[in-house]
Every structure is written in structure tokens, then in C-alpha cells.
Design a binder for these strands. Structure first.
Lengths: 261, 261
DNA sequence: CGGCCCGTTGATTCGTCTCAAAGAGTGTGG
DNA sequence: CCACACTCTTTGAGACGAATCAACGGGCCG
């Protein structure tokens, strides 16, 4: 189904968003000990010895081409995925209608938590660029919990944070107008990039206008118009996918629902 | 602040939604062993002996009057709450604007999971009628996890299900029109009532039009108009708060985004 | 070069919000 | 017990925002 897309290679024209991490493709065995995603996957309290023994649990990585599917809706759930590099979207295939994009995930974020409850994935995850994920077999998570209680508590914290994030997104969708939605979306992306050590104000959009629109409940035309308007108002500088926030405060104001008109 | 509201007693005029559970107010010590919420709080695999020892962990209950706040936004998080009886709303106080309702919770559902991640509650929970909750001190949850791994896995499952639910709500908000939103809301309420052993097609709305509107991202007038229209179309029978679904299939069709026009 | 996907912009239509007023239900105090 | 106040609900008229339909330009690939 997506075999066509997988062939497309991603042109590396981006200015700053994703530095090469120098990962050897042959090296499939993960080493949590030296992984720079440590802070995400594990609580800070784990010491070196514990991390070393953890390496028995998280052995595999997987590399995906642009457009490739990591897991599908309805697929049996048996692992969580930590995004090591790259960019993903999650979507729910809406029969007959266009697919609904339910989220975007970048380096350092966890994919697949929706599957824990029902034993099956509740959405489809697709790579938006060449990406690499770290597999955490979930059958083991229970066992891990007993050996590393703090690790399990950490997973709980991650899931709870996710719930809070969803709530926030929910709120934006429920009572913000289109301009606030898009502004909030841009600000949020910036925050997440800055957490990775990149600039919060200059980055490359990995997704199309249509995907943004689907995610925000807007038509792709509205998204395009808003980008143009933001540019006119001196809030951002957009060159198709390349985005620079030139007036972060103004954008944040709009995001919080205080329109200037 | 809510001391005024607490005095109001709730008139028990409802036809079918909440049978009296005959709970003795003096009996504050919870007994998970004989609790009819067993299936919610605990995995099915726990045997009687395990349940007995669990009673050391979940000792307290709390009774709330209508309008009373269970916990507030920003309050330190230290317990999860299982709704034993009654009805709650969660909301985020939007400074200056009207509050945003983020959810409604009924008997058998878990309140407070948003607080696990940040250590503070991310919303406010208010009782919409006389309600009773079961306190689960969260400091203990970690300890419980080690003694009862299946219990902790159960909590994970609950949180994951919550994430999936939120995603679904997100989707409805993102690309459904008002009529589909309200229809989906009604159908969802019915499902949840039926899980409690009540009719999925006849129940009492515990919340105002404004609260429904806030939750669905609609104005209260739109909600009211939609109820009227659904009634005209023979889908439901509404007497202010008393609701009966007269055409479940038709309502479900609208909920899923297949409008008849 | 031609085809295709993506993005932009314009004209029009339709849905929902806002403002407004009046009716219904409930609790309060004389 | 009734009048009053208050909140919640219903319904209408008008304004505004976003979707839709449509056309065109640009970049990328075969």
C-alpha cells in the first residue's frame, strides 16, 4: 500500500531542525546506557548499573522511510515506540471520508500508548520523514515494572502527561477560532523543537497543509490563508515548509485567544 | 466559594438513572471486597485474598454535595478518585472567559489521572449532584504496583483507554458539525449509562445546555436548537433534562457524520 | 517535457455565534 | 401559599467566520 511512498527519499534541505545523529544502520542493538533519549524513556533516578541491565529489555530499533507505516489501526499491540529521530503522524482512517490526523510526534516522544488499553492499536502511525524508533516490547513492561518500579512510575507519568496534552488540544479545538488554533499549533511545535535543543522560532514543517488542517479541524485552504495572513501581520515568515516566527509574543497572544481586532 | 451551593439538596425526581445504593454515611471505610466497583478499580484476576489485603490501601470515601469541588486546578495531586455514585464535570477555569468543560464523569469512572504526570491536578472536578468517591492515595500506588503487578497493569490499561477516548473526542470536535457532535455526545452518554445497567436510551442529563455547549465547543443556544431539531425529526424526546432516544439508529447515523440532507 | 502533488488565492454558500427577548422551572422570603 | 428572584431554556434575527468550489502557479519526478 505504501510501498510506492517508501521509495521516495527525503531531500535533506532543512536548515536546522534535525542534525544528523550519526547512527550506524548496522547497529541495531540499542544501548540505553549511551542513548540520548535516556531522559525520556527512563526516570532520572536510574543509575548506570540499572541502565546496563535494562539493555536486555530494549534490544531492537527500526528504521522507516518517509511514508512508511510503523503500525496500523487494529494491529495487535505489543510494543511501545520511542522516536529516536524523525517525525511521525498518527491518524485514524475515516472510511470514505478523508483520514483524520490525530497527532504529530517528534524525536523523544512515545508512540503507541493508545494500544495498552485495548490490546490493539487505536490509530495508524506513519513516518513523515526518514525516522528511527526504539522498540519497547510491552510484554516485558510488566516484568520491568517489578524489577524497576521507578521505571513503571515513569511510564505512568508519561501517560498522564499525554492525557493533559490531549486535554489542552481538546480545549483549543473546542473554543478557539481558526487563527488561534493555528497559532497555538505553531507555538506548540516551537516548544517541542526547543526541548530538543533547536530554536523554538525557526523550523521546518514536516507535514502538508492538509495534514495540519485535518489535525486542527480546518480546511487546507484556511490553513494556507492563515499562514499568509500571519505573514502579512509580521508574525511569521513562511516559505512553504520553512517557518520562522518573527513575533513570538504576538503569535502567543493570538494562540491564547486574544485577537487584535 | 461553593458553600452556598452545597446547601442545595438535590430533588430525587429522576426516573431511572441512579438507583439508591443504600450507602451508610457513617461507613467511611471502604471495602473493596464487597464493592460493586470492583471490576473498574481492579483487574479481574485478583482473588478474594488479594482484595482483602487491598483494603488496607483504599481506606477512605468522600461524599460531595451538588456544586462541591472535589479537587481544584493546581492543587497538589495525591490521590485518584473512583466515582462510586453521582456525576462530575471537569473543567479548566479560563481566566476572564467562560470556563471550559473538559469532561463528564459518572459512576464507575476514574477521576484525577491528569495529576499523575505533573504532580498537580490539571483541572477542577465539581460534583453535578450528590456524589460519592473512593479515594486511592497515589503515594501508595507505587507500593501497590510492587505487591500487585496486575493491579498496576490495570491502571495502565485505564489510562490508555482514557487516551483513546480523548482521541475519539478530539476527532469529533475536529471534523464533525454541530449536529454530529451533539448526537455523538448523546449516544456516548447512553453507552456509559448502559454499562451501569441502565437503559442506554432513557436518562437524565445532569448538566446544563451551557456545560454541554462548552464541552462540545458550541454555544448553549446551538445546543438547545439542536435538541429541538432532533425532537422534530423524531430522533429523541426531550423534556428539558429528561431525555429519551426514540430513534437510536438515526441518531447514531448523525453521530457518525452521515447527515440525512 | 508532461504529470502530479502541493500550495495559494478568489468568489460564493452555509453554518454557527452573537445579541436579544421571552417563557419555564425552582428556591426564597414575606 | 403566593409573589419574586434567579437560573436555565427556548426561539428569533442578523452578522461573521470558515467550508466549498474553482482556477492557477510552483516544485519535483519520471
Amino acid at each position: 500500500m505504501s510501498s510506492k511512498n517508501e521509495v521516495q527519499d527525503f531531500k535533506t534541505k532543512e536548515p536546522c531542525t534535525h542534525k544528523a545523529r550519526g547512527i550506524d544502520v548496522a547497529e541495531l542493538k540499542a544501548q540505553c546506557l549511551h542513548c540520548d533519549l535516556n531522559a525520556v524513556c527512563h526516570p532520572p533516578s536510574l543509575d548506570v548499573k540499572e541502565l546496563e541491565s535494562l539493555d536486555q529489555w530494549f534490544p531492537t530499533r527500526r528504521r522507516l522511510q518517509r511514508g512508511e507505516t510503523l503500525f496500523n489501526l487494529g494491529e495487535p499491540f505489543n510494543a511501545l515506540y520511542a522516536v529516536r529521530s524523525g517525525f511521525f503522524k498518527t491518524l485514524v482512517p475515516n472510511d470514505s471520508q478523508r483520514d483524520q490526523v490525530t497527532g504529530f510526534l517528534m524525536t523523544g516522544e512515545i508512540l503507541g500508548m493508545d494500544g495498552i488499553g485495548g490490546g490493539r492499536h487505536a490509530c495508524r502511525a506513519v513516518a513523515l520523514e526518514v525516522s528511527e524508533v526504539c522498540l519497547m516490547p510491552y510484554g516485558n513492561v510488566d516484568e520491568i515494572a517489578t524489577s524497576f518500579p521507578t521505571l513503571h512510575a515513569h511510564l505512568n507519568r508519561l501517560m498522564s502527561q499525554r492525557i493533559v496534552q490531549d486535554q489542552a488540544a481538546f480545549q483549543i479545538l473546542a473554543n478557539m477560532r481558526s487563527e488561534s488554533r493555528l497559532a497555538a499549533f505553531i507555538v506548540d511545535l516551537g516548544k517541542r523543537f526547543s526541548r530538543l535543543g533547536y530554536s523554538p522560532n525557526t523550523f521546518v514543517l514536516r507535514m502538508t497543509r492538509e495534514e495540519i488542517g485535518s489535525y486542527l479541524g480546518l480546511s487546507l485552504e484556511t490553513v494556507s490563508r492563515l499562514f499568509s495572513r500571519f505573514q502579512e501581520d509580521g508574525l511569521v515568515d513562511v516559505q512553504t515548509r520553512h517557518l520562522q516566527i518573527t513575533n513570538p509574543e504576538g503569535l502567543a497572544d493570538i494562540a491564547s485567544g486574544r485577537p487584535a481586532h
